[in-house]
Every structure is written in C-alpha cells, then in structure tokens.
C-alpha cells in the first residue's frame, strides 16, 4: 500500500506542476479542433459522406494530438536534471511514469475527448451516442499516451525526431484505431460496440501493467547516456 500512497502523492504533485500553466491545455485542443475542421472544408458540403467518415476522422485527430503531446511528458525533466535525480534516488521509476501519464492524460487529452462529440456534430455525426463515444475515445487515448510514453522515453531532448518517434509508436496504435473507429461507427449502425469497448478496456489494462515498466527501463538507459 506504500506504493499506492506514493503514487497518489506523486500524481498530486505532478498535477500541481501542470496547473502552474493552465492555458497550455489549449494548445492540443486548438490543434485538434483545427485539423478536424479542415476536413469539412476540403471534402465539401456532403453530410452523408462526412457522417460516414466522421468516427475515423475524430480518431485520427485524437491520435495526432496525443502524438504531439508526447514530448511534454519527460523532456523538461530530462533537461533540468529532475529525471537524473529520480533515478539516483532509487525511488520506483514506474511511479513517476504512471503519475506523468495519468496527469498528462487528464490535463491535455481529456478536454479533446470531451470536445470530440461536439466536433462530431460539425461532421453531422449523431450526438445521441456521445457518452459511449467519449468512453471509447477516452480509453483509446489513454492507451495511446501510455504506448507513446514508452516510445518517447527512447529519445533525448537533443535527439528528438518526430519522424522516428512516429515509426516507433504509430504501428502500436493500429489495433486501437481499428477497434476504436469500428466501435464508434457501430454506434450509428449494426452493433459491435461491446466488442470495441471490451477490447479497449483489455488493452488499457494490458498497457497499464507493461508500459510503466518498459518506459522506466528506457528512461534509465536514456539518463545513463546523457
């Protein structure tokens, strides 16, 4: 239980750190809104077409936004030496990873997920399903941020290369996107929704147990190198 107490403490302090700059959460939010709005503008005014592709567009939008959030996770701590102190202190590094993951998701990603049904409205997606959609997007984006945390901890600030990160991380997003998008489109059509939900829930549990370990191994190596 000492572990959980430590986790709660660390999460709270990370959360306070994020709250020191509250308007930072607008950056990914604006990015998400802008790229989603590009689609109706480029595809023209075709409600039936837009409604059909809307789940896919929203998922891709969330994916790209999450991808851009990834450097926020560890880079400042790498640069100012916080991470080095963590490793040297002998405290459990997975605690740090989970705290970062949870707080960054709640701070940066959750607003996107909540806004997604409204954007869906602009894409002529039926709003009656918004709660289920928020659930799916929330689970999926949480898993994405966890996978991304492993990928981004391979890189140091100086060597951060978004293209390399994309090749490292995006393949592992494929199942999330496949099941997430089919889950959302099933909301307006024939029912496969429960399968999508079950899959994403299983994936989140799977990643919740593996990603903190993998990411902290990578971080240790990264710190040792710098």
């Amino acid at each position: 239980m000492a572990f959980l107490r430590e986790l709660a403490w660390e999460t709270r302090s990370q959360w306070r750190l994020l709250l020191t700059d509250p308007k930072a959460l607008l950056n990914p939010l604006l990015f998400f809104i802008l790229i989603t709005v590009l689609f109706p503008l480029t595809l023209g005014h075709r409600p039936a077409l837009l409604a059909e592709v809307a789940p896919g567009l929203l998922w891709v939008g969330v994916t790209l936004s999450v991808f851009l959030i990834l450097p926020n996770l560890f880079f400042t701590d790498l640069q100012d030496g916080t991470l080095r102190l963590w490793v040297a202190s002998g405290r459990a590094l997975p605690v740090y990873v989970v705290a970062k993951w949870v707080t960054h998701w709640a701070f940066f990603v959750l607003p996107l997920v909540v806004v997604a049904p409204l954007l869906g409205q602009a894409l002529y997606l039926d709003l009656s399903v918004s709660w289920l959609m928020i659930t799916l997007l929330g689970l999926g984006s949480f898993a994405m941020l966890g996978i991304g945390a492993v990928g981004v901890s391979v890189m140091q600030k100086g060597r951060y290369n978004p293209f390399v990160l994309a090749v490292l991380v995006l393949p592992f997003y494929v199942p999330i996107l496949v099941f997430g998008a089919s889950g959302v489109s099933s909301l307006t059509g024939a029912g496969l929704f429960e399968h999508g939900l079950l899959f994403l829930a299983g994936l989140v549990i799977f990643i919740l147990f593996l990603a903190p370990w993998a990411a902290s191994q990578m971080l240790k190596l990264t710190v040792a190198q710098s």
Binding site: F179, L198, L203
Partner: peptide, 22 residues
C-alpha cells in the same frame, strides 16, 4: 508476478473481444 497477471488479464479480455470482431 503482478505484472504478468495484470497483463494476462488484459490480454484475455482483448482475445475475448477479438473472437467475434473484425
């Protein structure tokens, strides 16, 4: 052990979903 059990549970849930989907 805990990680294996947790990851196993997650994997099992995913397989359950996979059985009927895609």
């Amino acid at each position: 052990f805990l990680v294996l059990v947790g990851a196993g549970l997650g994997a099992w849930m995913m397989l359950q979903a996979l059985q009927k989907n895609v």
